[in-house]
Design a protein around this nucleic acid. Structure first.
Lengths: 213, 213
DNA sequence: TATTTTTCATACTCAACAGTCCAGTATGAT
DNA sequence: ATCATACTGGACTGTTGAGTATGAAAAATA
């Protein structure tokens, strides 16, 4: 029963009249992201619109409700945050690779933006379970999976001795996080300088290699 | 300059008239706790009052504002949650002690009540930094401290070989938590049964003893 | 130019909520 | 009995915020 118009709907053909400004999409999403990260879901559409330099109606022209906008922001941001995790593998030693992954994970996890994002998702986990699940699975759990793959391969090559790769990966990330990550989520700045953080990371890697080396 | 009245204020002497009903204090706090855990700080005073079987005025008679009530709830609940952590030490082997501590930490951390509480605190960390800090310090950080003390003593007795006790404690708790704790905060039920949880705990202890045994 | 669609500007509805006020009732002490 | 305090019931203020409505200006096509 699909006619020409339906088919063309896929390719977004606005036919006549003024074209929607794509820059405004970006402005709205970006403003919404900032506000949500700042105030949580309590952020108001009015404030978001004002920050985006746009009128409330324009927001509602693109997103049919606040929930909708929120979901869009989350998906958007989650995707953006995955990118730096596609860690290159290759010819490096196990220690170097783990150091790189650990450093990245460390940096990403403690990055203020990510902390605020995690806070937001944890806060709204009961209201938006689906989004929270996606966030977890495309974030920490994804990293854990990739790391697990790597560990399994390294183990197959005889560079490590691992039985349960998934468990080992979870342990590694746990070692890297320690209790301090929870502290960061709770906004305890932990007076922990770059130095101590590096030290903890190095200790985690030493420990892991001692366990499975 | 303290006169009799000031001194007596300490012992709460309302002099004349009808006495405040202590049961209502408890009812209000308990209702507020439930509602806050459920809806976050967005929970309304009206709902709290209704649930407590009390009129809004009565709430405001005891707590001068919503913030005040919230703070009272947090302090109250945080205290309540510390209690089970005063783990007895003694004649048991290091392994047994670690198992007990780990099991307790595991149970306490993953207990639905604590999860909801952590969610709440993380969500409001930027609005109530002081409360969040207290929560962290009287919760996870406190456990870490106690564990650290224990490890230092065990190390002094020669039962373990540990240089940095605080670091080791953090590592142990990290091993116990893995990535799964974050998943729980995000409401991912992880399809992880009691079995897998016990397994992870056992693995964490094995690993720790291999590291520092 | 005529037409269509976006965007702005502004005002509006409707509901919820923090906090207050008041009049009356209950409970205790003197 | 009387006075002070706790508590109820309900109305009230003022604000905020989600979502809608309306009308006019701006940009694009025919």
């Amino acid at each position: 029963m699909a006619n020409a118009i339906d088919l063309e709907a896929e390719t977004d053909r606005p036919a006549r009249g003024r074209r929607p400004d794509p820059a405004k999409d970006e402005a709205i999403l970006s403003a919404a992201r900032e506000m949500f990260l700042d105030k949580g879901y309590a952020a108001s559409i009015d404030d978001i619109a004002e920050r985006a330099g746009v009128v409330k109606q324009t927001v509602y022209a693109r997103f049919k409700s606040k929930e909708d906008l929120f979901a869009a922001v989350i998906r958007n941001t989650a995707d953006e945050l995955i990118a730096p995790l596609s860690a290159p593998e290759g010819h490096r030693s196990v220690r170097d690779t783990l150091t790189a992954i650990g450093e990245q994970y460390h940096r990403v996890l403690l990055e203020p933006r990510r902390i605020r994002m995690s806070r937001l998702m944890i806060a709204e986990a009961s209201t938006f379970p689906e989004l929270a699940r996606r966030y977890f699975e495309s974030g920490p759990s994804y990293v854990c999976g990739r790391l697990s793959d790597y560990l399994a391969r390294a183990s197959a090559r005889g560079e490590l001795k691992i039985e349960d790769a998934r468990l080992a990966a979870s342990q590694f990330l746990g070692l890297v996080k320690g209790v301090e990550h929870l502290g960061a989520l709770l906004g305890v700045d932990s007076a922990e300088g770059e130095l101590q953080r590096k030290r903890r990371l190095a200790a985690a890697i030493d420990a892991f290699l001692k366990l499975y080396g």
